[in-house]
């Protein structure tokens, strides 16, 4: 009996130690949880900060320039007199880059994805995929240099009337840069199509091509479209390539052989120059950035919506 009591006492002492230990830990756990929550909120803070920054400075700008004039004006000459703040030339410049880069990235990215997902032998895929992923890892400044020093001379050989800085050259580089983006996202969504669907089609005697456009592409459609939108959104926000190769002459044109300026290109130009802080030119920077932010954000939300809305549940 006595022995048991001693053992019990020892156990009780031990027990209260353990309990205290656990209580201390509980407090620590709570602190850690709150800290981590704080870290999780940082990303939200960043978004809020972006909004507030862009919004507050843009408001100052729009006190001088009515927002309607900004959005519908066809002349953009903030750096020389008379100043005009019509953003359409910057939008058309951006639009040119988007159109011509998409002509490259979308078909080539999609077809390459089809090849890797449906046609390529495993061994080929294992070599080719990393090589193309290298394209995605190359910094955009390098593409900009490539556009200016390799693509432009080539273009000017074919079209001697093209100017040294032109939209086409930058577009090609942007297009090449966004190929891997279209490729990997569409390939993922094609890979997600279950094999049973393919087998069903093959069992009906269809050729590979017929299976691809009859079964695989329709089934993976939402992912494919989302990849297009993301590539376009990326092209809109692309900066260094257009800053180096597309020129800095904002104009309303659809001719890709001319020098143009994009929204991002303008931001770079202003940032490099000696613009007085608080001047209307400096504020125009934020207005353009706000527009850029709103456009790319809507495109990202759109692609998200498409993926969620048309999600296939296999």
């Amino acid at each position: 009996m006595n022995g048991i009591n001693i053992k019990n006492n020892k156990k009780n002492a031990n027990k209260s130690d353990i309990l205290r230990n656990i209580r201390i830990k509980k407090v620590k756990e709570k602190i850690i949880k709150n800290l981590l929550f704080g870290f999780g909120m940082v990303s939200v803070l960043i978004t809020v900060a972006i909004f507030i920054t862009l919004f507050s400075e843009s408001v100052l700008f729009f006190q001088h320039i009515p927002i309607l004039d900004f959005l519908t004006g066809t002349k953009w000459t903030p750096l020389f007199k008379p100043q005009h703040f019509g953003v359409l030339p910057l939008i058309s410049g951006t639009f040119l880059i988007v159109i011509f880069s998409s002509i490259i990235s979308i078909p080539i990215g999609l077809l390459s994805a089809i090849y890797l997902s449906e046609y390529a032998h495993k061994k080929v895929r294992k070599i080719v995929k990393p090589v193309i992923e290298v394209l995605a890892g190359i910094p955009s400044i390098v593409y900009g240099y490539f556009a200016l020093n390799t693509i432009t001379p080539f273009i000017r050989k074919i079209f001697p009337e093209a100017s040294i800085y032109n939209a086409l050259s930058a577009s090609i580089a942007v297009g090449v840069m966004t190929i891997p983006m279209v490729l990997s996202l569409s390939e993922d969504s094609m890979k997600a199509v279950p094999n049973s669907l393919r087998e069903g089609a093959y069992a009906l005697g269809l050729t590979k091509l017929e299976v691809v456009y009859g079964v695989v592409i329709p089934a993976a459609f939402s992912g494919i479209v989302a990849s297009f939108i993301l590539a376009i959104s990326r092209a809109i926000g692309e900066t260094m390539i257009v800053a180096l190769a597309a020129g800095s002459t904002p104009k309303l044109t659809l001719n890709p052989l001319e020098s143009i300026q994009t929204m991002t290109g303008f931001i770079v130009q202003i940032s490099q120059g000696d613009v007085v802080q608080g001047s209307i030119e400096a504020q125009s920077l934020f207005a353009v950035a706000m527009l850029l932010f709103v456009i790319t954000l809507s495109m990202n939300l759109l692609s998200r919506y498409i993926v969620n809305r048309f999600k296939e549940d296999y």
Binding site: G40, M41, S43, V44, I46, T47, A49, I50, T53, L54, E57, L230, S233, R234, I236, G237, E238, T239, T264, I267, V268, S271, L285, F286, A289, L292, F293, T296, L297, M299, N300, L301, R304
Partner: peptide, 27 residues
């Protein structure tokens, strides 16, 4: 709230890098 954080992160990844530059400049 947590859904918002998640959506927000994927949107942040799509914000053009130059916009971060503007944020850095202002703040």
């Amino acid at each position: 709230l947590n859904d918002l954080i998640k959506v927000n992160i994927s949107n942040l990844a799509g914000v053009p890098s130059i916009v971060y530059g503007i944020l850095g400049l202002a703040i």
